[in-house]
Write a protein that binds this DNA or RNA. Structure first.
Lengths: 340, 340
DNA sequence: TTGAAAGCGCTACCAG
DNA sequence: CTGGTAGCGCTTTCAA
């Protein structure tokens, strides 16, 4: 891993390192002739500036950190891919860390990234994160942070979708399709995302004068199994749901499987709408009608917000990437829906 | 982002930095009393060793790089997740780069990682990579490298599955199920993985004295669309296939869709087996019988190989993680199969 | 146009 | 047990 240094070049030419430094960075104060020679030697020797020396000088690493609950979850992976592309394009590398959707790990990930002196951190919090002190500490240390998807009102810039509005749209669509007992499956009520989407769901019910039935709302820990048991319980009700709105991919899939395993037909017996990635929808069977999120844009926006902060902008911004209902096969065909 | 340094502590205590350095690293040569004070100040001031200073000193970054064709592809994402977990456990952070399955990007990714002075790189090559000089350069520079999935005989350690054997197993199973016109969909013939799997496929045919029909073998660029058109073409043959073996997730899914779109039934009319992740199989409909790979183990083994190299072991190893056929719903139920 | 020297934060080595 | 000093590779400032 030997790599040639400025000093090596300087020595070979019998000049001073500072001259080499200037030449290599195209600064003034080097005779064209010398510059040529230096550049030539640099190329020949495969010179690469030592990033640590540079970082040490400037305390700048051209590196950002990403914390996500699950790297392998398609939704996150797509956003990561987008962040990485955008970051690389801007000359930054990405360090990824996977919190396994656990608060403790998340804190650890943030800590490690800080120790690495990343210039900024993009975080999707764990579902059980209710203590934000690790993020507030970053803020206090003036380390740029951006949250996405799962956010909190702690004065940190973030990127989300129009959670409430999409829930209204989805729920309304189900109602228009004839559903009257719409179940809502979300994550913990501690998560703003869950609350917002539930808010939209309830709002739509109210607008249509449909009584709210508490037993149709299940907001628990997000996991495939919890989704399965919740759905089973719902199907066992004396008046089981005629539609489901699931706010997470795992939940949506579990709903699908539970319903199918009961021999019920989708959408004939029960409709389903989920907050899932296009890819998951495409793969599901029947293909789940879903709230389509522009994951690429979420990633791009997240990085841009971070970049702004890294460039000194300390305003707190909340970017809302508009999502909209995308119909597939888990909902009845729209007759006169406003959605086109 | 101000962080306290050893010098700050030294100054406050009126001692020398070298003493602080020793104390903070638990080395001998510091009075218990002084040590206490130093540790206390360090904690109070939130002291963090500056990784660049350390790196500059040791040329060690506690960082590895990962290059994959597509971060969002579940197979890769699961392996990355596993690598990241293993790496973090060993005190390393991971920088990810996504080559978009393009050779040019791949070269660029490797270059950037080298410039970052990562201590090692784990690579899954792009499908169009036929020039390995960028990797050979790493080898020459003694930068540890490990390949996975897509490998080449260039004297670099790697982790693969038993490609040929699994293809034999899958093909044999199809034959036992009554299939006689088995189509093979792979990537480019430049990829060893494709060649090996095709080898297994052909071997199984030979063993059962089934004539090899060249028109049933499609080895092209891997993409959803190419899989779709290839499958359509195959279905249009005078004697269309009665089974498909697809060596990549995108191809397997496209095969499924193409067949279904023609109104043919799986597995009644046509059987399908794919090299896909368990998760993709679970999501597909009908659930595709697949060659089940232990992705977690692939990641773990890849990192371990890298770690060995980083620790000075310069032997070239090829780890084969055994995969095996896992039956789902895209193949006829086994009657007297040896597979249990 | 070029050189010398200081310094970024840390560690290693040798003195005292 | 503690201090001083040199040096990792690079940039910057000042002097020549």
């Amino acid at each position: 891993m030997k790599t040639i240094s400025q000093r090596d070049i300087a020595k070979q030419l019998g000049v001073n390192v500072s001259t080499v430094s200037r030449a290599l960075r195209g600064l003034d104060g080097v005779s064209p002739d010398l510059r040529k020679q230096i550049e030539q030697l640099a190329k020949a020797g495969g010179y690469r500036p030592n990033p640590f020396a540079v970082s040490l000088r400037y305390d700048t690493t051209r590196t950002i950190g990403i914390v996500v609950p699950d790297v392998a979850f398609n939704h996150n992976a797509q956003i990561m891919k987008s962040i990485e592309a955008e970051a690389r394009n801007a000359g930054y590398m990405c360090i990824i860390t996977d919190s396994n959707d656990l608060y403790e790990n998340e804190v650890n990930c943030v800590e490690l990234l800080v120790n690495m002196h990343v210039e900024g951190i993009i975080v999707c919090m764990s579902q059980d994160t209710t203590d934000f002190s690790h993020l507030e500490r970053l803020k206090r240390a003036h380390i740029p942070v951006v949250l996405f998807d799962r956010v909190a009102d702690i004065g940190i810039s973030s990127v989300i979708i129009n959670d409430s509005a999409t829930a209204v749209e989805a729920t309304t669509f189900l109602i228009d399709g004839g559903a009257r007992r719409i179940a809502f499956l979300g994550g913990s009520n501690q998560m703003k995302q869950t609350v917002d989407r539930k808010h939209g769901y309830l709002e739509a019910l109210r607008q249509h004068h449909i009584p709210i039935r508490k037993e149709l709302v299940k907001c628990h820990h997000i996991s495939f199994n919890s989704g399965l048991t919740d759905t089973m319980e719902l199907l066992d009700l004396p008046e089981p749901p005629d539609a489901f709105l699931a706010t997470h991919g795992l939940l949506a899939i579990s709903v699908l499987q539970a319903i199918t395993s009961r021999g019920l037909r989708i959408p004939d017996d029960i409709s389903v709408i989920g907050y899932i990635s296009d890819w998951v929808s495409e793969m599901s069977h029947p293909r789940i009608s879903f709230v389509k999120q522009n994951l690429k844009e979420i990633g791009v926006k997240a990085f841009r917000l971070l970049l702004d902060q890294m460039n000194g902008d300390d305003s707190i911004q909340q970017v809302v990437v508009k999502a909209r209902l995308e119909l597939r096969d888990s909902t009845p065909k729209a007759k006169n829906s406003l959605i086109t």
